[in-house]
Design a protein around this nucleic acid. Structure first.
Lengths: 237, 237
DNA sequence: CTTTTTTTATGATTTTAATCATGTTTCTGC
DNA sequence: GCAGAAACATGATTAAAATCATAAAAAAAG
């Protein structure tokens, strides 16, 4: 899959080097890497890469939110991960030299760099620190995935729905009002993360709304009663 | 959590260096590592490490099968991964410098080495090749976990049960008869992997048995009709 | 600024799988 | 070899959530 975004010369507002895994690089290493990256702007809903495509670089999110989804045999989508500004994207297939097993779609307009495969591997080999950062990222994603497995396996839809809202809060945080989730997902997308039907998702959100756990305004979800939401999610902390 | 196994001096039949991630090391590196490992024998059902424990080394399975499980809030177990001879164990928490988030329990008598944390990290820093091998292992486990998420999210219990049997085949293979799964799990353990109740697990296995997809003899499961099992699992290959 | 399409919403029905209940078989310790 | 415990088995009932159906609201397209 080719880079779908429109190229943005100069890459002035690229802040990848400041945040995320690349903060362990020194100035020289950073410049070397920057020399072999290109930045692009993606509109909401665009694919950054698609299932079965071959990776030819590492994506770094400058701005924007991205969902990693895979398609089940019957066409139903599953949201596997949610990615945000400062995160790296597409590292798994790249590192294990495989095809992408999921697609990356922007949830809003995004600015994304791609670092050339060869230079990224060189940088990894040259900097064990960088390698450890990437490993930590993967380790975190593995833990998150396994937590999700336990949740899907042992919790009912209501608990998972509450958990999903807490996950969105943990991932993207709140807007300035300190209670509205800083991400807009359709009910179907939320269902695709929770592992339920769209109808059940809508029903439960309405119910949480009625019970004053959350407040719904279109796609915007505000968390009104965090404590009760945690209780509903049945989380042990 | 301390090493629960009884120490086995000499570690004569240690074959870790031959298989798995360590095959990329040269003789000198292997010897350095071997000098800082200790081997132990575990009886069936023993814990190798437990949830919330602090890792102080990397486990390598010489022989035996191990399950990685975590406990849900209501005490229900979830089997997250299955580990076999030649595999490394406990790498995630070690690499990300965290506590174990799951426990490792032997499914049969096992012989396991532990490589001292410090020396393992030194070896990783010294050998990018080794690091890449570990990264590939983690990448594989992440992919497996995400496949499991899709399965739990989108498939019904019958499909997941068939899939689990195929997973067991892929992981542990067959016995000499070329059809009996080379691992013995209780119905409850299978249920803890599939994400269902023990009763449903028993019922479905009986049904597969009646339908001649499999043959049950105590804990031994033989796959009689692989093609139909694949169909039942609804797998797209 | 309408028309069409998509998304959200909610009720009714059906399906799935959990739970409850009970009995049998197999394993384990003495 | 026997007693007790654990694991396996199976039927009946209940609960959960999917599906089906329809409609309102919102968004997108013309």
């Amino acid at each position: 899959m080719k880079n779908n975004g429109s190229v943005e010369t100069g890459c002035l507002h690229c802040n990848v080097r400041l945040s995320s895994v690349f903060n362990v690089l020194d100035q020289e290493q950073t410049q070397e890497l920057c020399a072999h990256k290109s930045c692009a702007v993606y509109k909401k809903g665009q694919y950054v890469f698609t299932e079965n495509g071959l990776p030819n670089g590492l994506f770094c999110i400058n701005s924007g939110k991205i969902k990693l989804t895979t398609t089940g045999y019957d066409g139903k989508e599953q949201i596997l991960r949610l990615v945000k500004s400062g995160d790296i994207l597409g590292y798994r297939a790249l590192l294990s030299n495989e095809r992408y097993h999921c697609s990356a779609v922007t949830l809003e307009d995004a600015s994304i760099c791609i670092i050339d495969k060869k230079y990224f591997f060189d940088a990894l080999a040259a900097s064990p620190k960088l390698m450890f950062e990437v490993v930590k990222k993967m380790s975190h994603d593995l833990k998150t995935a396994e937590d999700h497995i336990v949740s899907l396996s042992q919790k009912n839809v209501r608990e998972r729905m509450a958990e999903a809202l807490l996950f969105l809060k943990a991932t993207y945080g709140f807007e300035e009002d300190n209670q509205t989730l800083n991400v807009s997902l359709s009910r179907e997308e939320i269902a695709d993360y929770v592992g339920t039907s769209t109808e059940s998702c809508i029903r439960l959100l309405s119910e949480f709304n009625t019970d004053k756990l959350i407040q719904l305004k279109g796609k915007k979800i505000s968390i009104l009663n965090l404590q009760k939401l945690i209780q509903t999610a049945n989380i042990e902390n």
